[in-house]
């Protein structure tokens, strides 16, 4: 049984906050273009932290282009991420 989207968001939010912006509130449509502090460097840190803390490995394409929170959550569900 896949882990719920809500559980994943609960797990992701502190990661986003520690890496990008302590006041960030996650929603599905949120992407890097709406968050000035979410630059390409922060994005790399974000990916590494998500991979480490949720025990998943993203592919090169996902790692480079995935910047919408909703898509990320869907992907993590497919990968069987642990929340």
């Amino acid at each position: 049984m896949p882990v719920s989207r809500e559980a994943l968001v609960r797990k992701l939010e502190p990661i986003f906050r520690s890496v990008i912006d302590p006041n960030l509130v996650l929603r599905d449509e949120l992407d890097a273009s709406q968050v000035p502090l979410w630059d390409s460097l922060k994005h790399i840190i974000l990916v590494v932290e998500i991979e480490t803390q949720l025990g998943v490995a993203l592919t090169t394409d996902e790692l480079a282009h995935l910047r919408n929170v909703g898509e990320l959550v869907t992907l993590l569900q497919e990968r069987g991420a642990q929340a």
């Binding site: 390409s40 790399i44 840190i45 590494v48 993203l58 592919t59 090169t60 790692l63 480079a64």
Partner: peptide, 12 residues
């Protein structure tokens, strides 16, 4: 993956 995505030649 990180070289391809970010030109980092080692794990971040």
């Amino acid at each position: 993956r990180f070289y391809d995505a970010a030109k980092l030649p080692f794990h971040p």
